[in-house]
Computed example of a mutant assay.
Amino acid sequence: MEIRHCTDRRFENICDSTKALLTHEDTGYVSTYYERSAMRLLTEHGRIFIKGRSGSGKSRLGIRLLATLSENKSRTPVLLTSAEEWKLIPKTTAHDRRRYIVMLDDVFGSSNFVPSSVDGWKRTFDIMWPSIESKHIFLVITSRPEISIQCENELKKYDLMQDMPCVTLDEGEYILQESEKRKMLQTICPTKSGLMPKEIQDIASARATLGFPQCCKFFASSKQAQSKGVSFLFQAA
């Protein structure tokens, strides 16, 4: 959807950057049970918290949700990097009834807990809630669990965070299934890598550890990783 009539150029730039990112990420994606679960929870509740350690695919899952809902539900996708940017989202008016799907990636810090980031969002959560409660805006939040746990108790007082549906990748029912890992290997990793069907099966059936989606993606783009063959992929399997 064209948004050139927006009065705030900063918001236009954010939307353009988000759209470009969705286009870039549109290849080599394998549908998973955790993706379908996240989509169902998001459409039912209008918000979802995706947790996952580095390389687990939480950011790519969030981007996938943005891409799907922007295409199927005519929602404008927006990737925000700070609490201050939330205020740039246009309010609903008689002339502008667009709806949005907003993602806050690594909301409390990407590699370490960032108190100033948490403080910024705490000042904004109450402002955000009416738009999310009405489902004018769908919200996707991502974080590494070892980071989010450092502020979970203090965030429970906000309506936005109370009873928010959560999908934690690589845990419980959201562990990658053997069939999903096998399909990732077949879809993402290049045929020129020389992986044999038996090797693909062995890697997929090995006990899953963290970072498998990212490992496959790196393997597909790195000649050095491909030169190590199966031994590299077994590190993630």
Rank of each mutant, 00 (worst) to 15 (best):
E2Y: 12
I3M: 05
R4C: 09
R4M: 08
R9K: 12
R10P: 02
N13C: 06
T18C: 13
L22E: 09
H24N: 15
D26P: 02
D26S: 14
Y29S: 06
V30Y: 06
V30R: 08
S31D: 11
T32E: 01
M39T: 12
T43W: 00
H45S: 12
G46Y: 01
R47S: 08
I48H: 13
F49T: 01
F49S: 07
G55T: 00
G55R: 00
K58P: 04
K58C: 06
R60D: 03
L61P: 09
L61T: 07
L61G: 04
L65F: 09
A67H: 08
L69T: 08
R75I: 06
R75W: 07
T76L: 07
L79E: 14
L79Y: 12
L79V: 13
E85M: 08
W86L: 01
K91C: 06
T92H: 07
T93A: 05
A94M: 10
D96E: 07
R98Q: 08
R99D: 13
I101F: 14
D105S: 01
F108L: 00
F108S: 00
S110T: 09
S110C: 03
S110D: 14
S111N: 12
V114Q: 14
S117A: 15
D119K: 04
W121M: 00
R123M: 05
D126M: 09
I127C: 08
I127L: 12
P130E: 01
E133F: 09
H136D: 15
I137F: 11
F138A: 14
V140K: 01
I141H: 00
S148N: 11
S148Q: 11
I149A: 08
I149N: 15
I149W: 02
E152F: 10
E152C: 02
N153W: 13
N153Y: 12
E154N: 05
P165H: 06
T168K: 05
T168Y: 05
T168V: 14
L169I: 14
L176D: 05
Q177A: 14
T187Q: 02
T187R: 01
I188V: 11
I188E: 13
T191I: 04
T191H: 07
K198H: 05
R207M: 06
A208P: 10
G211M: 00
F212L: 03
F212N: 03
C215H: 10
K217E: 15
K217V: 13
F219V: 00
S222C: 07
Q224C: 04
S227R: 13
K228G: 04
K228F: 15
V230F: 08
L233E: 11
L233F: 06
